[in-house]
C-alpha cells in the first residue's frame, strides 16, 4: 500500500476559459482527518468531484490507495464513501430502505446490508425512526442518515462535504462525535467545511485553498504554534474604583514598559508583553490600582486566526456567503 492514501499531483480543472483548480498537489495519509478549507468558489467541491469521479481533471494525476482515479474510477469508487453537502437520499424510501439500497450499489449482499443498516440506525440514534420516509426526517436526522449511507459499504476513505452546515447545534455535535469515532476505527476522512473551528477540532492536518490554489498545508498544531509566538493575557476586571480606562492603561505602560494593551470592552483588556511574564505581577498591579481581577487567561490563537492571517479572508463573510448559497 502507498504511504499516502490520497496523492494529488498538479491537478487542474478548466471550465471553458475559467481555471477553477490551478495545478494543486497534496497528499493524505492513511487514518488522517484532512481538512480542506477555503471560501466559496475556491475549488474545494471541484477538487472533491475530481477525486470521486464526478468531474474529469483537465490535467494532473490522482492516486487513491494505489489506484489511478482518472483511469480506473470504479476501483476507487469501491473504496470511498461520499457525503455531499446536501442530503441527497430518496424522499420516498424509509431511512432503513435508503441505507439498504445504498449498500447494494456497492455490491453488499442482502443479509449483510440489512445487518449493517440496522447497526448504523442504532449507532446514529435513528433506530426509532428508521421505518419513516426520509422526507419526514428533520435536517439533522437527514444529515446523519446521509453520513450513514456514505459509510454503509465500510469505505477506507470518507469524503465529507460540509457535514454540519445548516443543522442544529446538538446534531452538529453528534455528527462531529461520529466522525471522530469513524476515524478512531481507521477510516481516513477528507473534510471540507467553512466552519474553521470544526476543522480545528476534528482535523489532524488542513490545506487552505484560495482561488484554485493551495496556499498552505500543515498540521493544525503546527499552524497554530506559529501564531502562539505572541503571548496574550486577557484580564476581566471588576467595576472597582472609577479610575478612567485611559489612566489605568497609562499607568500600566509605565509599570510594564514595552507591553501592548488592547481594550476588548470597558471591563476586559488584552495585555501583550514583549516576553513571557508571570501573570501574578499584572494581577498585583490591578489590585493596587483598585481594580479587582475576576478572570485572567492566556489567549491562544485559533485556526481561524491562522486562516485569516494566511489567506486574508474574512471568516464572517465566508460564512454569510455559504449560508446565503444554501438558502438560495
Amino acid at each position: 500500500m502507498d504511504a499516502n492514501i490520497i496523492e494529488v499531483t498538479n491537478l487542474s480543472k478548466y471550465f471553458d476559459d475559467f481555471q477553477a483548480v490551478k495545478g494543486i498537489s497534496f497528499a493524505v495519509k492513511p487514518g488522517e482527518v484532512f481538512g480542506f478549507l477555503g471560501p466559496n468558489g475556491a475549488g474545494k467541491t471541484t477538487t472533491i468531484n475530481m477525486l470521486t469521479g464526478l468531474a474529469r481533471p483537465t490535467a494532473g494525476a490522482i492516486r487513491i490507495n494505489g489506484s489511478d482515479a482518472v483511469q480506473d474510477i470504479a476501483a476507487v469508487q469501491q473504496m470511498i464513501g461520499i457525503v455531499p453537502d446536501e442530503s441527497n437520499l430518496y424522499d420516498e424510501l424509509s431511512g432503513y430502505d435508503n441505507l439498504v439500497f445504498c449498500a447494494s450499489l456497492y455490491g453488499v449482499r442482502k443479509r449483510e446490508r440489512e445487518r449493517r443498516a440496522e447497526e448504523l440506525l442504532e449507532q446514529f440514534g435513528l433506530a426509532d425512526t428508521g421505518r419513516r420516509p426520509f422526507k419526514a426526517y428533520s435536517k439533522g436526522m437527514k444529515r446523519k442518515l446521509t453520513i450513514a449511507a456514505g459509510i454503509i459499504h465500510e469505505p477506507q476513505i470518507l469524503f465529507l462535504d460540509e457535514p454540519t452546515t445548516g443543522i442544529d447545534v446538538e446534531s452538529a455535535r453528534q455528527i462531529r462525535r461520529l466522525v471522530r469515532e469513524l476515524n478512531d476505527g481507521g477510516t481516513t476522512i477528507f473534510l471540507t467545511t467553512h466552519y474553521i473551528e470544526e476543522a480545528e477540532r476534528l482535523c489532524d492536518r488542513v490545506g487552505f485553498i484560495v482561488g484554485g490554489k493551495v496556499v498552505r498545508i500543515d498540521r493544525v498544531t503546527a499552524l497554530m504554534g506559529e501564531d502562539e509566538k505572541e503571548y496574550i493575557i486577557e484580564f476581566t476586571l471588576g467595576e472597582g474604583n472609577s479610575r478612567p480606562e485611559a489612566g489605568l492603561d497609562q499607568a500600566m505602560l509605565q509599570a510594564f514598559p514595552g507591553v501592548k494593551i488592547n481594550r476588548v470592552d470597558h471591563r476586559r483588556l488584552r495585555v501583550i508583553p514583549e516576553k513571557r511574564e508571570p501573570i501574578a505581577g499584572f494581577i498585583k498591579f490591578f489590585e493596587d490600582a483598585g481594580q479587582p481581577v475576576y478572570e485572567a487567561k492566556i489567549i491562544r490563537p485559533t485556526l481561524e486566526d491562522v486562516f485569516v492571517r494566511i489567506t486574508g479572508i474574512e471568516i464572517a463573510k465566508m460564512k454569510r456567503e455559504k449560508e446565503g448559497r444554501r438558502k438560495r
Binding site: 469521479g53 464526478l54 476501483a75 476507487v76 469501491q78 441527497n88 437520499l89 450499489l105 456497492y106
Partner: peptide, 12 residues
C-alpha cells in the same frame, strides 16, 4: 434532488 449523483458515484 441530486440523488442521481449517488448513482453516478457508485462503482458501476
Amino acid at each position: 434532488s441530486r440523488s442521481f449523483e449517488r448513482l453516478l458515484l457508485a462503482p458501476i
